[in-house]
Amino acid sequence: MSKSVSKSVKPIKIVVIGSGGVGKSALTLQFSKSKFFLDYDPTIEDSFSKSCYIDNEMARLDILDTAGQEEFTSMREQYMRLGQAFLVVFSVTDRKGFEEVDSLIQLIYRVKDREAFPIMVAGNKIDLQNDRCIDQSLAQELVQRHQEFNPYCAYIETSAKTRLNVDLVFHDLVRLLRLYNAKGGSKQAKKSKCSLL
């Protein structure tokens, strides 16, 4: 595809969030550069750009890879304000990271001030089957709970190391975003029904 075509497309801002050490950077790098790095470097912030065709439609993805540590919460919220779609990553070998997923999704709702928003939950490191402690059903149950309110939420299992579902997770997220935009999600009223009367 020509550069001029891709530049004319409005970029989609995807923010990758999750606990520390779950493989956010590995997923992002595998998708954007088709490489798997064995380095164990904590991220503070990295951004990548990639253009691709999704369902015969050009998409330019601006992917923001964020820090997972708790102390970066304030930065994380600033990133979230900019994001149009979110990839929430956890490791299927790390229960604590999984426990944080729900809170991160809630944080997205709060920061975006919406009850529904395109969110893809990715269970990473499924190549490490022997160390697996989060069943697929458990993760799907979590996502289904959110789907009751947010139809633009989905779950995919990935392996950045083997590149399993790496493209799919980003492509599906873009599909969710397109669906969300098509249904007028971005123009919908923000959170309603304040419980306090």
Partner: peptide
């Protein structure tokens, strides 16, 4: 009530 939950979150949680 968890630290990050807003009133709406709580309402939703209760319903669920």
């Amino acid at each position: 009530v968890k630290p990050y939950e807003t009133a709406n979150d709580v309402a939703r949680k209760c319903k669920t």
